[in-house]
């Protein structure tokens, strides 16, 4: 018999999550679907909606702290997020739909660990870290390193994400996010690419690239990034980076698209971003 447990404090949350078969239920936009299709069969659902430490958006120093159970719509409406992490706002604007954004949360989108998790892309690019809480205390986990595979993360039994920290970064980023799917809203991406780039005297000062739905986890495209550092973005560099990105991903054939198509889309989106950035 499934139990529903609403907790008010982090102590109660930890306690409830320790029990056999306990699952944290936040917005429910993934978990309720998985439960009803029989993919997961929890014994209890632990709802942290009333735990204040998991809610809200704060700025501390240059950092942005977003409570893991803050609804996506609230994050999207936040002026601080728009100013300090504009690419996160751009991505949330096309994540799910109004109804999903009113329920879904950043912590949920990450813990669900879909290879297509849209919010992972800007968080990888901004080099965000997660405040992970367990019986042993609190640890800081970089988003790059959090995912292990589809539906799998480094979260151990009884652990939960308290908050997402986005460190201050340069203000002169040129930003990019594009996902390819079959419908404008509610699309599970066939492939997505995000990027941040900054220039100094016509050369790349810094560039960060990430892709979703083209590997078991959302990932940074490091070899393409390394290739671009310090270079002028001419046609040859753009094409070369696109080709490196296409080699770096490991997509599969599935109901949404073929692996080959996903590689091509990755290459083209990386090249599109770089060409736009060079012309900006």
């Amino acid at each position: 018999m499934l139990r529903y447990v609403r907790v008010d404090t982090e102590a109660d949350l930890l306690d409830a999550l320790r029990k056999d078969g306990a699952r944290l239920l936040s917005g429910g936009t993934d978990l309720i679907v998985k439960m009803r299709s029989g993919l997961v069969q929890p014994k209890s659902l632990v709802d942290p909606a009333a735990v204040p430490e998991l809610r809200g958006i704060e700025t501390a120093g240059g950092d942005l702290r977003i409570g893991a159970a803050t609804p996506l719509a609230e994050i999207l409406a936040s002026r601080e997020v728009g100013e300090r992490a504009p690419l996160l706002a751009d991505v949330l604007r096309v994540l799910g739909c109004v109804q999903i954004r009113n329920r879904g949360t950043l912590g949920g989108n990450l813990a669900n660990a879909s290879p297509a998790a849209d919010s992972a892309i800007p968080l990888l690019l901004y080099e965000a870290t997660l405040e992970v809480v367990g019986e042993g205390g609190t640890r800081s986990v970089p988003v790059d390193g959090f995912f292990l595979g589809p539906g799998r993360t480094v979260l151990e039994r009884g652990e939960y994400i308290r908050a997402v920290h986005i460190p201050a970064s340069r203000q002169d980023w040129i930003t990019f996010f594009h996902k390819v799917g079959r419908r404008r809203a509610l699309t599970i991406a066939i492939a997505s690419v995000g990027g941040l780039a900054a220039f100094s005297r016509g050369s790349v000062a810094e560039v960060r690239l990430a892709a979703g739905s083209v590997a078991p986890i959302p990932l940074r495209l490091r070899s393409a990034e390394e290739r671009l550092a310090g270079r002028a973005l001419d046609e040859e560099a753009v094409q070369r980076a696109g080709a490196l990105a296409a080699e770096e991903v490991s997509p599969i054939d599935d109901v949404r698209a073929t692996a080959r198509y996903r590689r091509e889309v990755t290459r083209d989106l990386v090249a599109r971003f770089l060409a736009q950035a060079a012309g900006a």
Binding site: G28, T29, I32, G96, Q99, N102, R103, L186
Partner: peptide, 29 residues
């Protein structure tokens, strides 16, 4: 659809549109 894709079950929860198929009754307390 019963999985948050179609919006036929949209209601307002504290004034905000949500899919009522993705909210547990207990969460409406």
């Amino acid at each position: 659809c019963g999985e948050g894709e179609c919006g036929a079950c949209t209601v307002l929860l504290d004034g905000r549109p949500v899919n009522s198929c993705l909210v547990l009754a207990a969460q409406a307390e």
